[in-house]
Amino acid sequence: MFSPNTKYLIVDDFATMRKVVKKVLTELGYSDISEAEDGKQALQLIQEAAANGTPFQCIVSDWNMPNMTGLELLKACKADPKLKDIPFMLVTAESEKEQIIEAAKAGVSEYVVKPFNAATLKEKLTRVYNKHNPAAKAA
């Protein structure tokens, strides 16, 4: 599982959902949690953090947002060699198969449909960690 000092970025245009995700992450023991209101703001934060040598280690993003959607943010990260390996979860009300396939093709690490509970988010985070750390999973 992600270490307790993992640096998270939560991206959602609704403050309520940012609070919900932050609450769950805090209950799971994480405290280094930043927030962004849309994909454009998030991308700026992600790029700045990477340039400063303190990159985000997991991004949890909504899909439907103004200025830049979560899918566009995901694609932007995947297109940047410095950002492409950051674990990226989409947490969204979109649950149709076509959307899930589109996200998978774009390289999403995991997909969570809202509403979700703490146990579901924890399970998904574990899967994301294992996906990005196969050696740890094998051990």
Partner: peptide, 10 residues
């Protein structure tokens, strides 16, 4: 707004 987002998504 978020509650409506989730309901409408389903």
């Amino acid at each position: 707004g978020e509650i409506s987002n989730m309901i409408y998504g389903l």
